[in-house]
Amino acid sequence: MPRSSYTTDGPTVPPDLGYGGGDNSGDGPNLPNYRERLRRCRVGLVVGLAPIVMLFVAFTSAYLIRQNTGQWDPHSSAYINDWVPVRLPMLLLGVNTLILLLSSVSMELARRQVMRESLLAPLANIPGIKTDEVTSFPWLSVTAILGIAFLAGQYLAWQALAARGFYLASGPSSQFVYILTGAHAVHLLGGVIALLFALRAAWSHQPIPSRRIAVDISAWYWHFMGVLWVYIFALLYFLK
């Protein structure tokens, strides 16, 4: 019979490794310190990305199933598949991809920048010395603008598709193109809104830490959106 856990557990209180199960009390038990909050929000973000992944996994599997299963045709007494590859506006989508990747770069720069600011933070409290964002380059705004540009680009891409006769309801393949790109656009829009929040945090002189967290989280989310888009683009291109 195994012996009771408190004897088999070894040291009854493990050393503080800075994760849950260690000592989490930062600045008082209820307002954990900056390090705690950053880690917590990052964990939350990573966890939160899982359902987004599943959403697109579901769309993808639907895409593949639909592409490879036929329907019983009572006339020819056989299974036929009505799949027609979509002719994508490659140039336009290529440009959009470029824009989105650039925006990821500027996002990263913005993140690094805020990181540095948070080092200089103490100076800001000394009267007289004033470190305001205007002097530092507005990477955050650049990212937001690039993001909006990408969305506009996608809108053009949809119009281009329509011009080639691929409408939402015009066929098995085009409906998936719209669903996948549309769902991605919606999530990216969420990213843009997050950026605007981060910007507001910057302008409304919120305490540097919470501002940095806002930027940091939006940044990782933004990078994820970039990766997601590349995946969707690849899927639509290679598995027409």
């Binding site: 009854t12 209180v13 503080d16 994760y19 849950g20 199960g21 260690g22 989490n24 880690r39 964990v43």
Partner: peptide
């Protein structure tokens, strides 16, 4: 994952 008390 993140908020367990010390020793939990």
């Amino acid at each position: 994952l993140d908020m367990r008390a010390r020793g939990m």
